[in-house]
Design a protein around this nucleic acid. Structure first.
Length: 322
DNA sequence: AGCACA
């Protein structure tokens, strides 16, 4: 962006950063927010709930005048960062909250993976609209039951531009992300029906598939997969079924079975070919025996392995019977 | 305090 144009800008909020066109007023949703859950009670007069784009001036109780950023970099930001969300928030709720505000484009809900923490990003067509929505919605009491209060600020960077016809909201889920090739919910092999997590948005799987990008699946002469098995996040919740990965492509069920059968409490083994990268699920009688096996197997290499030590952790879910 | 997607 040209700094000179900044210097000559007459008004602090004139939008010179984007050539996007604002939504027509007719496209704005009706002013009343209907929420079956009874959420969304702004803690200050409802500036944001009426289409007040026609010159009416609302006294803003909390913030007397719009804050002018000293940092010109901020003027180019048209994405808001939202925290303080309840952990059962739905992307749709975020969308409903922001979409009634002028210049809204899209939003993303992100499960950070730190506990149940959830944050969101709301993208507007320009900085001015983003600031207006922030002024209207910051400090909104989002859930009167719990008192959950939204905190809204400018994001550090803008969202990637949404492709034309792209989804109006997306979900980014970093919860219990283990290594890309360690998709270890063993019941989830073929068709993906999310039975236990309800956060799936059927429209955009694109948000989830950050996988399958960087794994060198060619065998390398020097065993340099150490970074892989060491950095891999591990499911530490004990389970009587173990998940085993980083096996060589020639690893057989018989070979693994032989290794596992010397552990007491070992029941059955199931292997799944994961596009040339086999993974295995080993079921034990109880968590005590699976824990013992896990302890003694971690750091070991089996015969067929060509990529260093096996990756072993508790499975996300217990193997079902029979 | 927690800030991603490319």
């Amino acid at each position: 962006m040209d700094p000179k144009s900044l210097a000559h800008a007459a008004q602090p909020y004139h939008d010179y950063s984007y050539d996007m066109m604002p939504l027509p007023y007719s496209a704005q949703p009706p002013p009343v927010f209907h929420s079956p859950a009874g959420r969304l009670h702004p803690s200050h007069p409802p500036t944001g709930y009426h289409p007040s784009y026609y010159g009416q001036h609302h006294p803003l109780p909390a913030s007397p005048a719009p804050v002018v950023h000293s940092n010109p970099e901020k003027l180019a930001i048209s994405t808001l960062f939202v925290s303080g969300l309840p952990d059962d928030i739905k992307a749709r709720e975020i969308h409903n909250l922001f979409s009634r505000h002028h210049g809204f484009d899209s939003c993303q809900l992100k499960y950070t993976g730190h506990g149940n923490q959830v944050v969101a990003f709301a993208t507007f067509t320009n900085h001015h609209s983003a600031m207006a929505a922030m002024g209207a919605l910051d400090r909104t009491i989002f859930d009167p039951e719990t008192g959950a209060t939204l905190h809204i600020e400018l994001a550090r960077s803008n969202s990637r531009k949404r492709p034309r016809g792209g989804a109006p909201y997306m979900i980014i889920d970093k919860r219990t992300r283990v290594h890309e090739d360690d998709e270890n919910d063993w019941s989830n092999d073929g068709d993906d029906e999310p039975s236990d997590t309800e956060n799936n948005n059927s429209r955009n799987k694109g948000a989830f598939t950050a996988a399958q990008s960087r794994k060198p699946d060619r065998k390398l002469a020097n065993g340099q997969t150490a970074q892989d098995s060491e950095k891999a996040a591990v499911n530490s919740r004990p389970c009587s079924t173990l998940f085993i990965a980083n096996l060589g492509p020639t690893c057989t069920e018989a070979e693994l079975e032989q290794v596992l059968s010397k552990f007491s409490g070992f029941r059955t083994l199931k292997m799944k070919g994961r596009s040339g990268m086999p993974v295995a699920f080993a079921d034990f009688e109880d968590v005590e025996s699976s824990a013992a096996a896990l302890e003694s197997l971690r750091g070991t290499t089996i015969g067929s392995s060509d990529r260093g030590e096996i990756h072993i952790e508790y499975a996300r879910s217990k193997m079902r019977k029979a």
